[in-house]
Every structure is written in structure tokens, then in C-alpha cells.
Simulated scan of single mutants.
Amino acid sequence: MIIFIILLIYKFIKGTFEYEKVTQFELVIIPVYSIIMVLLNLNDMPSITAIGIAIILLLIGTAIEFLQASKTQIKDTGKFDSYNRPILEVKRNLPYLVGWIGSFLIAISIEIFYGSHFNAEEISRELLAEILKGLSVIAFLGGHGTWSVWILNFATSFSYGCCLMIRYPKIKEAIRQKIK
């Protein structure tokens, strides 16, 4: 199990420093899915404390994304997909990885605040689940999470997409919906 986790961590870290195609999934579907999951989990957020934490998480998530997007590089391949959209590639770099680690630690901290108890094995399992979500569409859409995790995920993914679209307007063209 540990070797599997190490291999996944290596793949995740390596992918952070390589160019990958800009996709609608990352910039549109993840934020939309995350906000839907927040709305579906609102029953679990009845107290004023929870609402305060939600607002703080939105602000922290937004700040993390400004950090994560700060050194992101976009490359225009000069090619177009079958919908005549430009194919752009993104390389996230070190600030993205630092922000991801920060988000993970904040999510664990919120879980502990609400009474969860973690040992090394449980943290390893959570880390594995988060890395799998970062590497696989199926793991992301099938993943579980509390309202706090989904709010943080929404804040980070939405802000990241907005930052990139403001800095690189051509991204809007690369992810626009086109019907053949």
C-alpha cells in the first residue's frame, strides 16, 4: 500500500511540473459539481459556527488559488480540436503543489475541529483519496466529502479558473462549448 501511495504521489507531483491540456472538466465541471455537492450537503451545516467556517473557507480557498495560479504557465500549441477551439496547455508549477498541500491540511483540520480523529493510517487513506481525485475523473466524481471539503474545493477550483481566464483570455476560447 505504501509503495502504491508513493507512486501516486510521484505521478501527481510530476504532473504538476509538466504541461497538460486545458480542459472544461478542470475549469468548469469541477467548480459546478463542487457547488452542487455543497448544496446537497447543506443539511449538515445548521449552525452559525458552520456558516462562519464556510465563509472563512471561501476566503481561504480564494487566497490559495491566487497563490496556485501565480506561477502557472500557459502554452498555445497552435493546434485546434475538432470543435475548432485552440488547444492550450497548462503547467501548474510549485505554488500549485504548495496550495494543494495547504488545502489538504485545512480540510483535515476542519474534520478534526468537527470531532474526527485521525491516525497515520487514516491520514494516509485521505491523502490517497485526494491524490486519486486529482488524477482521475471517476475518483473525483465518486469521491465523498463533507460540506466543508466541498466548499473549499469549490472556492479553490472556481478561483483558479477565474484567475487563469483573466490572465490568459484565450482560455475562454479553449473551453467554450461548441456543437458540431
Rank of each mutant, 00 (worst) to 15 (best):
R92E: 14
I56K: 10
K170L: 13
S70K: 13
R85N: 04
I123S: 14
F154G: 11
L88I: 02
K71S: 15
A54D: 11
E130M: 12
S109T: 14
E121D: 14
Y83V: 05
L141H: 02
K178V: 00
S109D: 12
E26A: 11
A120R: 09
G15M: 07
L8Y: 10
W147R: 11
K11P: 00
L27N: 06
S82V: 12
E111M: 15
K170S: 13
L42W: 03
H117M: 07
K21V: 07
I13K: 00
F154H: 07
R92C: 13
I131V: 14
I175T: 01
V137E: 02
E20N: 03
Q177D: 00
G142S: 02
G143E: 10
V90F: 00
I53S: 00
A107M: 15
L27V: 04
W147I: 15
I171K: 04
T156M: 15
I56W: 04
L141W: 08
L127K: 11
I171Q: 06
F12T: 04
S157C: 12
K11I: 09
G145L: 03
K180Y: 01
L105V: 12
L67V: 13
N41Y: 10
H144I: 00
K180I: 02
I106K: 02
G102I: 15
F17K: 03
I112F: 12
E121T: 11
I101S: 01
G115L: 08
K133T: 09
T49Q: 07
L132W: 00
I51K: 06
V22M: 11
M165Y: 02
L57Y: 12
G134V: 08
I131W: 15
A139N: 03
C162D: 03
G161M: 04
S157F: 11
I13W: 05
I30Y: 13
E122D: 14
S47N: 13
